[in-house]
Design a protein around this nucleic acid. Structure first.
Lengths: 223, 223
DNA sequence: GATTGCAAGAATGTCAGACAATCCTGTTGA
DNA sequence: TCAACAGGATTGTCTGACATTCTTGCAATC
């Protein structure tokens, strides 16, 4: 029996469920940025006790998905454009690196998976379902990050992307953004498929810069 | 009155104090890797209640400084060399970028601060106090990261460095490591002082590669 | 009318105690 | 020797409580 086969069934605790539910709610924009989360209300809605909720909130605070100010409680942080820019810059650093590494080491099976996710995004881009666009695009990146050979890169990237999900939904719904995004992602895919590390980095960098620019436009339009 | 002047005095809560105390304890190696942290014991030692402790533990879990397995409780993760390598690689990515940016934008006052920290490390290197060496070296990086113009870069870097503190103490006590580390750091400082971005990146990269190699040796020696 | 001061209500920070579910360990029995 | 089991230890979760702090509306003052 392989040693790394983890047979432990990890029971899902109330706190884990709560973190997942709240994270999903935040990422899908259920709460307005700046709005406060009242513990007693959340307890009632989630059907859990206050200690369990507070543990979950501490986890989300450490992920920077919420802020907790002493004696004021938790709230959804309003991301400034400066912060978003900083995140995009670091994300670029990580994603470019991941794409480059991925080009030289992705297994054939995973490459097919990447192609599938590209096709899924193509379909979403053709429709006008911006939620599907964001989801399928996220899948595409996830596969790249998961195959770059560095789990930390993946972990950090996931954390950062979560924090700018607010902008990604809005920029994707800009006129023509989905289509040009598709073209850029196809470039990335083809560079990786060709095993061309340098091209993959270049394509990835270009994509990120355009995504950042689109996010800026979306923000300034105040969509 | 400037809008960004934060006059709010933020009261320190029990949970914050606890997170800080435990983090410090973990980083200074008070707990053996793999050892379990028993809630009731920690409560007694810290003089706090279990709910407060559990909140603090969730924060530390999200920072990846401890692991919490359902029904087994918190423990200090034993970092494998593969994980440490992955962290060193991402750290390299971030630190090289930060050094490069820093070279072209650090204010004169902060540059002097950087020089002071270099001198402090020099002093520590001359002594055989490896704790002082790690501390002063950390100060040196902190100043670079704080002046790279990207707070996210700094934040992510801090999180990663914390996780490999275990190795840094050990590698610094290798024969001659402190001295060669000093030479590398002086290179970085001088490149930054000269405003030479390219040289700063190069020097930073070289330093990181050597640090990683030293950490590997330290680990294999099983110090 | 605008501002200050105050008081009631709401929300948070923290604790104590409880109990079921799970894990760990040593003993017993085959 | 190995498997089953019993007991204690530990965690997951809840309820309830209370002091402290924040918020808000109203009254009083300039």
């Amino acid at each position: 029996m392989p040693a790394d086969l983890n047979l432990r069934i990890s029971p899902r605790t109330v706190q884990q469920e709560t973190v997942d539910k709240l994270r999903l709610a935040i990422l899908s924009g259920l709460f307005q940025p700046g709005s406060r989360l009242v513990e007693s209300q959340l307890c009632a809605q989630l059907g859990i006790s206050r200690p369990s909720l507070r543990e979950a909130l501490r986890s989300l605070e450490a992920e920077r998905l919420i802020e907790i100010v002493p004696n004021r409680g938790p709230s959804i942080p309003a991301l400034s454009w400066e912060e978003a820019t900083a995140i995009y810059e670091v994300r670029e650093l990580l994603e470019v690196e991941a794409a480059g590494r991925c080009a030289s080491r992705i297994p054939a099976e995973q490459l097919r998976e990447l192609e599938r996710s590209l096709l899924a995004f193509e379909e979403a881009a053709a429709s006008h379902d911006s939620l599907a666009q964001v989801t399928t695009a996220a899948d595409f990146y996830s596969i790249i990050l998961a195959n770059c050979g560095n789990p930390i890169l993946e972990e950090v990237h996931r954390g950062l992307v979560a924090r700018i999900s607010f902008f990604r939904g809005r920029s994707m719904s800009l006129e023509g953004r989905a289509q040009s995004s598709l073209a850029e992602m196809r470039d990335i895919y083809e560079s990786i498929a060709a095993g061309d590390e340098k091209a993959a980095r270049k394509a990835s960098k270009k994509h990120l810069l355009k995504a950042k620019a689109a996010a800026k436009v979306a923000m300034e339009n105040g969509v």
